[in-house]
């Protein structure tokens, strides 16, 4: 794997609204930020779950769509030149003499002085389908992503779902699998029409099977899948299979963050309300992922937390330097940073 070494003042984990606004507050204090997000674009839940939904409680915006809010934040932080690392998840964090070293599953290593966790509800990960007892097969014969296509050679493969992932893997794995059955609840798909057409052509040629139905149960022993029981409009059916790839969308999980030794409060990161610092000095948590008495999971609360966190972060990166409190409306120094003077 290619490793890529990055040195920066601050690494922000999560590029949702709070992570983005943190770039602004840190930028006013001359701190350089890199952001890491498992998604492929900025915005977090706002763009992933409800881009079109209006938000009514952003100060001064009687109504703004989640996507517009993210677009505006991107515009607001542009002068500070944040760098984004999309499609990556921070998996390791360790303290070093100078600060912290972080590694991602994409092979990026960061050396930084301050870490800001702005990971919202956690990282988006594949959702476990609601099939009783499926846990026992996970990792062995039930997998949620394809790392190596060769792992499926000669297997009797069952793919469950009706979106692009399910259809793409049906098309890509068909030549390798011994048999392949695609299961979807209804005859309509959420995938690109072209993929659906190709899938039906394979079905008509007898290369794959398509079953309309829902997986109600799985059978097997010692983590090795033997069959899936389908509930179809015509009744129950048993489909022999040795591997299952279910695509049931994404859910949010705290993920590796939970293993970094930070004090937690019911799956949220406990912080103080002066600096929004975690139990580990130099690691801050802002937005939906943190907890303190009175916490409200509102975007505006996260913005406030970002501003106070930035003051504390500056003291860590530039110890001894005097911080002068300034307003963007009147400070020529801040206006130069914003590129408006």
């Amino acid at each position: 794997m290619l490793t890529n070494l990055v040195e920066t003042d601050v690494v922000i984990i999560g590029a949702g609204p709070c992570g983005l606004f943190a770039v602004f507050e840190l930028g006013l204090l001359d701190l350089k930020c890199h952001l890491v997000d498992i998604l492929d674009r900025p915005g977090g839940q706002c763009t992933e779950l409800y881009p079109e939904k209006p938000i009514y409680d952003i100060p001064a915006w009687p109504e703004i769509s989640a996507q517009t809010l993210v677009d505006k934040l991107m515009e607001q932080i542009r002068p500070f030149g944040p760098e984004f690392h999309f499609g990556e998840m921070v998996t390791e964090l360790e303290r070093t003499e100078e600060g912290f070293r972080l590694r991602t599953d994409g092979g990026t290593t960061f050396r930084c002085k301050v870490v800001v966790i702005a990971a919202g509800g956690g990282s988006f990960q594949p959702k476990r389908p609601p099939i009783p007892g499926i846990e026992a097969y996970e990792g062995k014969s039930v997998v949620y992503s394809v790392r190596r296509m060769e792992d499926f050679r000669g297997e009797d493969l069952l793919i469950v779902g009706g979106g692009d992932s399910a259809l793409d893997w049906t098309l890509n794995l068909q030549p390798l699998a011994r048999s392949l059955t695609l299961v979807h609840r209804r005859p309509e798909f959420r995938a690109s029409p072209d993929s659906v057409k190709k899938m039906f052509a394979l079905r008509d040629a007898g290369e794959i099977a398509f079953e309309q139905g829902q997986v109600a149960a799985v059978k097997g022993e010692g983590g090795q899948l033997e069959a899936a029981i389908l509930k179809t409009p015509e009744g129950e059916r048993e489909i022999p299979c040795t591997r299952m790839l279910p695509f049931f969308g994404l859910t949010m999980k705290l993920g590796p963050v939970a293993e970094w030794g930070l004090d937690l409060h019911e799956n949220l990161i406990a912080v103080d309300t002066e600096k929004f610092q975690t139990s580990e000095p130099g690691i801050f948590a802002i937005g939906d992922i943190n907890w303190y008495p009175g916490k409200l999971k509102l975007i505006l609360s996260g913005f406030h937390e970002a501003a106070l966190m930035a003051q504390a972060a500056k003291r860590i990166v530039s110890p001894g330097e005097r911080i002068v409190f300034q307003y963007t409306t009147s400070s020529s120094a801040l206006q130069k940073k914003l590129g408006v003077l």
């Binding site: 979106g163 609840r185 209804r186 829902q214 049931f248």
Partner: peptide
Amino acid sequence: EEDMLDFAYDV
């Protein structure tokens, strides 16, 4: 909503 129901149990 139909799309989201694909992820539900026993539809």
